[in-house]
Design a protein around this nucleic acid. Structure first.
Lengths: 248, 248
DNA sequence: CATCAAGGTGCGGGATCACGCAACCGGTGA
DNA sequence: TCACCGGTTGCGTGATCCCGCACCTTGATG
């Protein structure tokens, strides 16, 4: 059995190495990569089916790397080891995990014990191991109460990218009015109004930008997800230019 | 001589401890705190004049902690040890360092050697030690070419908070039109238009929100600075309600 | 089948934003 | 002294956004 570590911080890498050596005696070989891109290649070359991966790396996010790895070998077991349980990350991960694959999400603040249990659970037992803190976020984001539907999340990303209503409508194949409806729902759920109504002098907030601000503060959005969305947007823009306007 | 470490990651804390012990034999005592708040208190209680501090911590940002520490004891030497050289961080730091204080900014990716040199330079020689990578950012942000003036940065933050033009005008004591002018300059410098003019079909972007997006992607803004700005905004809002409208 | 809730769509209007044009003003250098 | 320049302000217009009202799907439920 072989394990790949993808993590940019050398200290954390060393720590992981120890944890793996200490909890997985059946693991004969540990290989390492210090960013997402290298991790991707190394996984391919060594045919690594057991991976521990950091999210938030500079060259290539853990999510991006994991996505292409899983596209090639969906049976790969991946343990995400991250600093944060932001909804943006959790949503990003659960969006890409293939049907029935074993994966895990444990926080870097978790104890030695927790990490080692997760390593065994995922890599030898084939379970999914998700930290309780992360579970909470996951739950919330899929319950419809104060959680966001996929479509609301879409418009949230689109306005955060700076698109106009019209552009969003085109991109998501909706009418202008529908987009605005979704925005409305978004404003409701984000509680944009709460802070505003303090004075009779309302209208201190521009709803659209305020929504972005609140989403960032509530960790629904993070800069990584924006970067990701930005490149998807660029792809869409170039593809829709070559094949312009095929509605109707 | 006594040194205080403020850092939330235990691994990094241990690493720092070694680095200090190895490079500062004159240091007899090392004390530690695992978040900004604790660091602040500990600095006060132990009257620590030599501090190594992480930026980005959960409970209280390094910047916030440093600010109140410096307010009490401006002669404190602080070495900021951070993962990133984002303009938002660099600007945040250089905004709070008191006249003539010795401080440093070194990246976590720097070599052992660099870190140890910085430790000696700041704590025993009283120099300022700024990593080259960080210098670059600092330079850029104060040269007027493609850099941002303080006032442009102000409106950038304000729109990122979600304020309307009118609200910004009131907060910064400007006319509505001036605010809009500053926005204009901001849009120019951020190159908002570049991406938009590809097709004859312009207007895919809402300038205001696009500006936020680009600023985030260019690391001019980060979520920490937003959180900080948000509490300042709350203060201003409550104070301007008690003393309402004293123009003219 | 009747009904009901969710989501998409059109219409229309009031508010806000983006921005060109023009005027003003405190400092700088010829 | 005068021309110039960067920053501020007022006026006005067209584009965009926010959002209430009303209608129409579609799938689920009694």
């Amino acid at each position: 059995m072989k394990t790949l570590i993808v993590e940019d911080d050398p200290l954390h890498r060393a720590y992981l190495r120890d944890a793996i050596a200490g909890s997985l005696p059946e693991c004969q070989e540990i290989i390492e990569a210090s960013d997402g891109l290298a991790g991707e290649q190394m996984a391919r070359e060594h045919n690594a089916l057991h991976i521990v991966m950091d999210l938030q790396m500079s060259t290539r996010t853990g999510i991006e790397a994991a996505r292409s790895i899983w596209r090639e070998r969906p049976e790969t077991c991946i343990l995400f080891w991250s600093n944060y349980a932001d909804e943006a990350y959790v949503r990003g991960v659960s969006r890409i995990v293939p049907e029935g694959a074993a994966y895990g999400y444990v926080l870097k603040t978790a104890s030695d014990q927790r990490l080692k249990l997760a390593l065994r659970g995922i890599f030898v037992e084939g379970q999914c191991v998700i930290d309780r803190e992360v579970r909470g976020v996951q739950q919330k984001s899929f319950s419809h109460r104060a959680g966001f539907t996929e479509s609301e999340y879409e418009v949230l990303i689109d306005i955060a990218l700076g698109l106009t209503d019209r552009a969003i409508a085109k991109r998501r194949s909706l009418s202008l009015r529908s987009v605005q409806n979704r925005l409305q729902q978004l404003y409701d759920k984000l509680d944009i109004y709460k802070a505003d109504e303090t004075g009779e002098d309302s209208s201190t907030f521009n709803l659209r930008t305020r929504a972005i601000s609140v989403a960032l503060l509530k960790k629904l959005l993070n800069v990584n997800s924006l970067e990701q969305a930005e490149i998807e947007l660029a792809e869409w823009r170039s593809s829709s230019r070559t094949r312009p306007d095929q509605r109707q």
